[in-house]
Structures are given as C-alpha cells and as structure tokens.
Amino acid sequence: MFEARLTQGSLLKKVMEAIRELLNEASFDCSENGIQLQAMDNSHVSLVSLNMGSEGFDKFRCDRNLTMGMNLASLSKILKCASNSDAITLKAQDDPDTVTFTFESENNERVSDYSMKLINLDQEHLGIPDTEYSCVVKMPSADFARICKDLSQFGDCITISCTKEGIKFSVAGDIGTGNVKLAQTANVDKESEAVTVEMQEPVSLTFACRYLNHFTKATPLSEQVQLSLSADVPLVVEYKIGEFGHIRYYLAPKIDE
C-alpha cells in the first residue's frame, strides 16, 4: 500500500508544470524515504532529478518500494482538476496498474477523485557522480527566468561566465549581442533577493537557451535558484521544493566545433 497526502497540493501542481514540457512520460519511484523521479528529455540533452522527502507529507506510507510509470500529459490533465488550495492524496496498491488522486477542498466540502492508468516504462537510471563545482551561484529565480527569456530573443545559446565578482550571461546572434551581469550582492534585506557566488575557479560555459527556458518553468517553486558550474560537465539548475525536496536539472554543455 502506498499513500501520500500533501496539504499544500499546489506544490505538486507546480512540480508538474516544471517537468511536463521537458518530459512526455516518467517513472515515479516511491519508497519509505519519499518520492523520486529521474528522467532524460527526449533528445538526451538534459536530465531531470526530482526528490520529495517523506517528511514533507502530512501522511506518508509506503509498505513496498514501487515504481509508477506515468504519462505526464495525462497526469497534467488530472492535476489541473485540483484547486491550488486543495490537499492532494496519492494512493496505489503494492503492485499497481492504476494510481488514485484525491483532491480535498480546505473546508472538506468538496472531494474529488481521479484514477489514472499507469504505464510500463523501461527507463534507464543514470549514475550522477558527486562533483565539486568550480562555481555555485544562488540568485533570485525570477531574475534567472527573465534573463533566459530576454537573451533567447537574440540567439540559440547563452554563455554563462562566473568569477568571484559575479555572474554574466551573454548571447550573440544575427542582430547583435546581449549581456547581463549580476554582481554579488553585499547586503540585502531579503535573503530571496540575494546573489551569492562561491567560486573555486572562474568558469565559462555555453548552453542551449531552449532547455534553460524549460527549466525556468520551475520558478514558482522557489524564490531562489542555484546554478552549479564546472568546466566540461553538465550545468545543474536547482530549485527547492518547500523544505523537503528539490528539482534539479542537468544540462550538457555545448561544445566548440
């Protein structure tokens, strides 16, 4: 028996929005530790890794580890039927072929449930090595989304350069060039508005705009985003999910030809 209840059901809706454009289908792995998902986009350029710890759920029961393969377009349809203020409960049997979603309104006067057929996915799991990154930048997530959107107008890829002074996003295209520099903030009233840079050595890497823009669909999850960069390894873009989880996107760099 698997049962997970999240009072703040809007978190699950936001998680769905954060992955549905990138992935067509994905396996949700459930264990006593919580819910995890790892999947590559269709072109195998990026990888999504989602972790929601059991401690973040109001109720969490998972008697046996199980994997639930879901079509994300179908899941999206179901989660769109939940209001932002609804509590969401997921339920499945031990060897399930369906999963049930129950949405309860705040006053409990409206209860709806939907069941969805699961699919068998033969997804390969990738081992993500522990990496000490040369630069780790934390910045407001809305700012990152705006920069990616603004610069995408000018070219297909963005170069991210990081020094101890700050981070620079650059684009070059047919009509010209664009640069956005963010300095490390000295002191800000709100932690959510800070830009911080932890740098071992400077880095400059180039990434496809298209994927960066997909990742920014996670912006509603968290006010801050963390970018981890090292030469010649994938970029990690991380958004926290409340206090109990995260969504990490790994993006392979573009290489010089």
Partner: peptide, 14 residues
C-alpha cells in the same frame, strides 16, 4: 542542435 553534447556522455547508466 549544432555542437550540443548528450547528457549520456557525462553520466553512465547506473
């Protein structure tokens, strides 16, 4: 996409 590397180049199958 021109010059785009695959994520599989960096992460091995577990």
């Amino acid at each position: 996409i021109k010059g785009q590397s695959s994520i599989l180049k960096f992460f091995a199958t577990a």
